[in-house]
Design a binder for these strands. Structure first.
Lengths: 122, 122
DNA sequence: AATAAAATTAGTAATCATTACTGATTTGAG
DNA sequence: CTCAAATCAGTAATGATTACTAATTTTATT
């Protein structure tokens, strides 16, 4: 296991302590409670590194900014176009695994996003 | 069927005549061959409208710009981190349909992106 | 056909999330 | 301890996308 910097560990901890899908700015504000002078650029850089390392997921739901997810297990993101909420829907197994391997493709990270209307908004 | 403007029809036609996943700029250049003075803003606006209407898909594979897909059938997008190519993998049926309906969610569009290494790059 | 209202456009300016850059600081290996 | 590599805070720059405006086109109504 690699040794991450204090800043990187703090970012990862914030992300793992929520089940929402926060933006870089939201994470930045939270980490500042622990490391007040951390730079926003540091947050962005580490989110990129963490995502490339497979520690987190980078999710784009089409609302103008990237979101990040501390849960890297394959799951659906259901974004309601009414309220903007993002719901998780977990899978017992990744139904695409066989299809992906048929293509000779070695997967690193999977992001599934479904746009629609949630039960509260219909 | 709705009557779309000449510009909107041309954008849709360009998008349906390729099996790649072009960016707005690429589409803009292609449409300019037919409508030389079309504005880039018009391309963006109509891509948004077409996506909201369900005529096309907006896909973010994490390379810094949105991409668009004229094929709205549920399918995987396999993006190789080696060469950047985006491969399609088609499904016989959407394996998430039951799960989505269990959540009481009414889906409008589904975008599935898998990052990894393609067989040519490994 | 004439008229008014609504939708769409071309062109340009503005936005803002993200990235790039800088010199300083920290970390780890030998 | 020493050097090189990694990372940092702070700030400036980037560039894809959106917003704006006045003009044009389309649609509906009489």
């Amino acid at each position: 296991m690699k040794n991450y910097s204090r800043q990187r560990e703090a970012i990862l901890e914030v992300l793992r302590s929520t089940d929402t899908h926060p933006t870089a700015s939201w994470i930045y504000e939270r980490v500042r409670e622990k490391i007040p002078n951390i730079s926003l650029g540091t947050v962005y850089r580490n989110l990129t590194v963490l995502s490339e390392n497979g520690d987190i997921l980078t999710i784009n739901v089409g609302d103008g900014q990237e979101r990040y997810d501390g849960n890297t297990a394959a799951h659906l993101h259901l974004r309601c176009t009414g309220c903007g909420e993002i719901y998780d829907a977990f899978l017992k197994s990744d139904p695409f695994r066989d299809l992906i391997s048929e293509e000779g493709f070695i997967p690193e990270a999977a992001v599934y996003v479904v746009r629609g209307i949630c039960k509260n908004c219909k």
